[in-house]
């Protein structure tokens, strides 16, 4: 019970950690932005705006309730899994060693670069690498059947709330952990190798300055029903909340669009960009007639596993049939 208590408190800590999306400060800013948007652009009065933001039908929907549960349960599962996953430190050290053994690479060649440039370069490089790798892995999550089986959990949300970020299968958590470990290791090892020991990251409240900017710009609204859109030109560069809501839409024309997190440029370059559209009550989820059962814990945790097993077994049963056929043919020949 103590352990559960501890984990519960540990989960709540996420609300007070500025490195996390659901930091209370970012949530408050998101509310302010949403209110401003609804009053100024949607012409609601303040009371209507508040009612819309805190829409009980959404916040207490079956979909949202399962998000909240997953937030706590995953925390427990990940606390067991994370310690056995390879760390960014282990990979960074191995890479740092490796760079020393590459004959055409010289350690510390840019040691004398002014500190402000080193820090700016590292901070920007790491942000870009992180954002690109998130785009890339997200794209894979949609394109590979095994990965889609687990990513579907996130897309099964029929209402979006900031807590939907936690509507994630633990196996997907493992994939994201490894992605993060590798990108951090690449940034750290290459920069320390080339620029020496003064490499550092520019942060605000401990968060990468760019991530901080992204979060105070209302990152929480991408998982919400407040469809804030940007100017068209800006949506080529930065993903607007409405663009991400499009990504969650059940409509066929919205499938496999807008994989990016902060930047839209990756989607633009690789042909998956979709601008926001003015659609009243955009339908979200995996299917048009999605079953209520998809919000049950059993379904959220075990359906992906079942699906993966089926994907793996299918070719095996085919192989078995082929072997049977060969055996039959051979025995037939012998006769």
């Amino acid at each position: 019970m103590d352990l559960l208590n501890f984990l519960f408190l540990d989960s709540l800590y996420e609300f007070f950690n500025p490195k996390k999306r659901i930091f209370i400060g970012y949530l408050l800013i998101a509310v302010l932005i949403a209110a401003f948007w609804l009053v100024y652009f949607r012409k609601l009065n303040l009371r209507e705006a508040i009612n819309k933001i805190f829409d009980k039908k959404i916040l207490f929907s079956k979909s949202a309730k399962s998000d909240y549960l997953l937030f706590f349960i995953n925390q427990i599962i990940m606390s067991v899994i994370s310690p056995v996953l390879i760390t960014q430190l282990a990979i960074a050290t191995a890479l740092f060693y490796y760079f020393h053994s590459v004959s055409w690479l010289d350690a510390g060649v840019w040691n004398n670069t002014p500190l402000v440039i080193i820090i700016s370069a590292f901070t920007l490089f790491h942000f870009l690498l992180e954002d690109f790798s998130k785009y890339f892995v997200h794209r894979l999550m949609h394109k590979w059947p095994i990965l889609w089986a687990i990513h579907k959990v996130h897309h099964s949300a029929t209402f979006l709330t900031p807590m939907t970020v936690f509507r994630t299968h633990p196996l997907e958590g493992v994939v994201f952990s490894l992605r993060s470990a590798f990108t951090q290791a690449i940034s750290i090892s290459s920069f320390v190798f080339l620029f020496g020991p003064q490499v550092d990251i520019a942060t605000i409240l401990g968060a990468n300055i760019f991530i901080f900017a992204f979060n105070i710009a209302g990152s929480n609204l991408r998982h919400s029903h407040i469809d804030i859109s940007y100017w068209k030109w800006l949506e080529y560069l930065i993903i607007s909340p409405a663009q991400h809501q499009v990504h969650h839409s059940v409509l066929k024309q919205h499938h496999d669009k807008n994989f990016g997190v902060a930047l839209a440029v990756w989607d633009w370059f690789f042909g998956s960009l979709h601008h926001s559209e003015k659609i009243e009550n955009l339908k979200l989820g995996i299917h048009i007639n999605q079953k209520e059962d998809t919000h049950s814990l059993r379904s959220l945790y075990f359906e992906p596993l079942k699906e993966i097993i089926l994907i793996v077994i299918k070719p095996l049963t085919k192989l078995k049939q082929i072997l049977k056929l060969i055996k039959f043919t051979l025995i037939g020949v012998n006769r």
Partner: peptide, 22 residues
């Protein structure tokens, strides 16, 4: 410690130990 900077930065960036879909 010649690897101190690497471990400091690793700690500063922090591992991703929760399952989150950005």
């Amino acid at each position: 410690d010649q690897l101190a900077n690497i471990s400091d930065l690793s700690a500063k960036l922090g591992g991703s130990n929760s399952a989150e879909n950005d």
